[in-house]
Design a binder for these strands. Structure first.
Length: 507
DNA sequence: AAAAAAT
């Protein structure tokens, strides 16, 4: 099951010595540490960029006097990107240090020693008091990609668990098995000294999952909707002691074309047993529709939002390349980008369909490039293996469907390629026969490019534009985020790509 | 028409 080896809580150690300067180049790191992740660039949570760190000085949150009031965050003006709305009488004070949060010494040790955190990142400073202060209100929290959302809710879950109660008390639901596993790994690390038990609720391939699995005693459960629902309906997962329910990628989990039905059902069942269970919704994106809907799902809630124009597009340099046909798109990837080989970090190439993934995989392999591919039609074992190889830096180029668009965290990825632009398919309620012009999927676009430039590192995206439709989609994306995408003048020019990557800080 | 999860 999990980490039960509760070491007798040693003294919480003093903060670790200041982190190494992060001036070394990406390539250097990759060569030196084939096996390990490079050290995080900053000790601040999953922290903001370095520049942000130095000026980060979180002030007291305003106490809301009336029913519902908007607190513009009292950061330096240029830094005031997070807007908080609180309800009720509870005053919240932004946490400048982890000590202020009344965490257990064991949990603090995990933060300092295992996670190498020094003080809360901005989103953590603001959201953690809201999560941890009674009465435990629901929360809708939006924050930038790679800004430390995961650590927020993992820390939230760990600190709300009563170590003495050996039953599930916190549940986190994620859209994919990959994200569930990743989140479990964070929880394991952060909670290492707490002795809090956990289990990952994702489907397993073969017969290893017996007909009659044992009831879950783990205190924290993280997994995908189907498996969690099954465990609940089979009475293997008790919700009697449930205190916290987290939805990672909450906008997708509650979207009609996402996991809305499953999610609502799980919320309902938990609330039936525990009326006051706290519901936490986290995502980098909440479009207006979803925002409206989710506000009906949560009860008395606080919220944190970021303007879409300010959502993480700064650290990732965006490019578009016009390619006459599909063959050229493939050649651009091979001859213009993958040729640069060792000079680049890891790369994810996003496609819109499994078919597209297989096609591209075959084509690139035929051209002699080493790539691996992941999508939902592979068996679970293979998926896990491909992700593990990529995370261990054993493979450099990963072709993926949107299964990895959200949340996937691999710090060495600094380049994303959109072989296909993300499209919305849910043009629902159209009169028959009427074709609606294709819309880009803005949220997916943002999530995809958020795979590069994690933690304020440099990153770039190449959007391969082939048809007139692509061109229009690209324009809409630029307009939506109010962020121009630089054109690579000619797909034929190696120089043009080198210039682009240099300017993005990757070469 | 897509993807994902799972039945």
């Amino acid at each position: 099951m999990s980490d039960n080896a509760a070491a007798p809580a040693p003294e919480v150690e003093k903060k670790p010595s200041p982190p190494p300067e992060l001036k070394r180049s990406w390539g250097d790191e990759a060569e030196e540490e084939d096996d390990k992740l490079p050290p995080p660039p900053s000790p601040i949570g999953e922290g903001p960029s370095k520049s942000e760190v130095s000026e980060l000085d979180i002030e007291t949150l305003k106490i809301d006097e009336s029913k519902k009031k908007v607190n513009e965050f009292l950061e330096e003006p240029e830094d005031s990107t997070i807007e908080a709305v609180t309800t009720g009488e509870t005053p919240y004070t932004s946490a400048a240090t982890f000590e202020e949060l009344n965490l257990s010494p064991e949990l603090l040790k995990g933060l300092y020693v295992e996670m190498k955190f020094e003080k809360p990142s901005k989103i953590q400073a603001i959201s953690l008091p809201m999560i941890l202060t009674p009465p435990y209100k629901d929360l809708i929290a939006q924050a930038h990609n790679g800004s430390g959302k995961t650590t927020c809710f993992v820390l939230g879950m760990l600190s709300r668990v009563d170590p003495l109660i050996k039953a599930p008390q916190a549940l986190c639901i994620c859209p994919t098995r990959e994200l569930s596993i990743q989140n479990i790994e964070v929880l394991e690390k952060m909670g290492k000294y707490t002795g809090i038990t956990f289990e990952c609720a994702v489907p397993v391939d073969s017969g290893s999952e017996k007909f009659n699995r044992n009831p879950v005693f783990a205190q924290v459960v993280i997994g995908t909707p189907g498996t969690i629902k099954r465990w609940m309906s089979q009475r293997k997962l008790s919700v009697q002691e449930m205190k916290v329910l987290v939805f990672d990628e909450a906008d997708h989990m509650l979207a009609k074309d996402g996991f809305q039905d499953d999610s609502l059902r799980i919320i309902r069942d938990i609330r039936k047993a525990q009326r006051n269970a706290q519901v936490l919704l986290f995502s980098a994106t909440f479009d207006e529709n979803v925002k409206n809907f989710v506000s009906k799902v949560v009860h008395d809630y606080n919220q944190l939002f970021v303007k879409k124009e300010e959502l993480s597009l700064e650290s990732v340099k965006q490019y578009k390349v016009f390619c006459p046909d599909e063959q050229i798109k493939i050649r651009v990837i091979g001859e213009r980008i993958l040729e640069l080989g060792e000079k680049l970090g890891q790369i994810i190439i996003f496609v819109n369909s499994k078919k597209s993934a297989s096609m591209l995989h075959t084509a690139l392999v035929e051209l002699g490039y080493e790539v691996t591919t992941i999508h939902g039609a592979l068996n679970h074992e293979d998926r896990d293996k491909i992700v593990k190889e990529f995370k261990d830096n054993l493979t450099k180029v990963l072709i993926s469907t949107d299964v990895l668009a959200r949340g996937f965290d691999q710090q060495r990825v600094n380049l994303v390629i959109n072989f296909d632009l993300p499209i919305k398919y849910d043009n629902t309620e159209q009169p028959p026969g009427r074709r609606v012009p294709r819309e880009p999927h803005f949220e997916v676009y943002l999530h995809r490019i958020g795979r590069a430039g994690r933690f304020g590192r440099k990153g770039a995206v190449f959007n391969l534009i082939m048809t007139e439709t692509d061109r229009v989609l690209m324009e809409k994306i630029e307009r939506y985020f109010d962020s121009p995408v630089t054109e690579v003048p000619s797909w034929k020019s190696e120089e043009d790509f080198a210039v682009a990557l240099k300017s993005a800080g990757l070469l």
